[in-house]
Design a protein around this nucleic acid. Structure first.
Lengths: 233, 233
DNA sequence: GCTAGTGATCTGTGATCACAGTTCGGGTGA
DNA sequence: TCACCCGAACTGTGATCACAGATCACTAGC
């Protein structure tokens, strides 16, 4: 044989199906809040908008529906579900618990590389939030980047995947409000909590890091709930 | 109108698509270990076996693949993935963390109804495990029932859903071994850990309950890993 | 005897069609 | 003016077809 040694080092190139692409596109719409609770979705319209047939769309939607991010009503209507206040509270508590674990582990076992990435992400978010005219959509994205930079350092891929799903589920209701109302939230509490988390991670203080993220999540959730945009069913 | 008040109390009857049914059927196969790591799956064969067309099967498989319970190789082959020792360890640690939260909350806020259900499940598992000729498959099912009876009492639906997914992912590798090898595991450690957990939940001692479940998971995982059936890639 | 190649067969993916059920608009009736 | 009804258009679901690529058994060539 000629170059098996070199060939063996080739990375497994992952296959991208159309369904995957559509899934990502829809996820983006949901995570950024451009799809709000109650919004309807049509397979054929979405397919036409994306320039594909309905097949990839229905597979993507089926996955999203399995995650509870979309729902197909008994009437066969796809929409992003309304969340009751109770459900939102349960989701927030779950996030506090799960993300609390992740950040605690991250604080304990972060490498210098992890730390650098987290510092970068924190600085980026701070810069955007303190800018004269902050771009809301960008701030939301940077907030997400920061959180996931932290969770990446926890060293538990399954846990990261779980958190990604939780964010996807919470995305529409959180970002809808962030989009509709000024960044009173982002500028005030979030910056402080992020700073606390960063300091705790630097000091490898897992309890403090966990508490900071818990406060961040809880305050954001309380802000949303105080605005009362949730269904009381 | 005549009886709107009565009608309003009707429960929303959920629609069952063929895809959902297929998803459950495949989940069963995976959770019980009848589908082992490395086993291949063909859409058309599965469809024929289930008496449906390939459509529902591919939607179900697509969902399972999104959960990482199945994988479609670049060759377009569907199979239940092999798990590396590292991945299995990460999964076990994630389970310890997440299920630890659930059981701790369950210990704090369990009602008498919850407690009765947990006691029943514990007794059922014990009875099967201590039987003269225990039915392995049944013991596995009862073990699962007991764990989920506990998690049901945590009052956090999103968390329960997460745990269900984790069990689905761990199912094939765990139950393959449990199926292949005598219930040395079930009779020895599990019974003791379950008893500890039950006592702690009765006493509303969340730390002890969490520790008992953690030990249960860890010991089972170590048993699997000591048997060395995992890929080292 | 062993390797390389070749064609039948099977793989998942995507598109298209068929269908039952729902929604919604326009019109007719009182 | 309002309620009702009917039909066109649209909904997701399931089945079927088309296709590119992979697999596997087999054979021709060395």
């Amino acid at each position: 044989m000629n170059s098996t040694a070199a060939l063996a080092e080739l990375p497994q190139l992952e296959r991208r199906t159309l369904s995957d692409t559509v899934y990502e596109a829809l996820s983006d719409l949901l995570a950024s809040g451009r799809l709000a609770p109650g919004d309807r979705l049509s397979l054929r319209q979405s397919a036409a908008a994306l320039g594909v047939s309905v097949m990839p769309v229905r597979e993507a939607v089926s996955r999203l529906a399995a995650d509870g991010v979309l729902e197909v009503a008994p009437n066969r209507m796809i929409r992003v579900p309304f969340m009751s206040a109770a459900a939102f509270r349960a989701l927030a508590e779950t996030r506090i618990a799960v993300e609390g674990i992740a950040v605690a582990r991250a604080a304990e076992r972060r490498t210098e590389v992890d730390l650098a990435a987290i510092r970068r992400a924190e600085a980026a978010f701070r810069a955007e939030a303190e800018a004269a005219r902050p771009d809301r959509a960008r701030a939301v994205q940077l907030n997400r980047d920061l959180h996931f930079a932290i969770y990446d350092a926890c060293g538990l891929p399954p846990l990261q995947e779980i958190i990604a799903r939780l964010w996807l589920k919470a995305g529409p209701v959180i970002n809808l409000d962030l989009r509709a109302h000024p960044e009173r939230l982002l500028q005030g509490f979030a910056l402080r909590r992020h700073a606390e988390a960063l300091a705790a991670i630097e000091a490898q203080d897992s309890a403090a890091a966990s508490a900071a993220i818990a406060a961040d999540i809880r305050e954001a959730a309380e802000f949303i709930m105080s605005r009362g945009g949730l269904r009381d069913a």
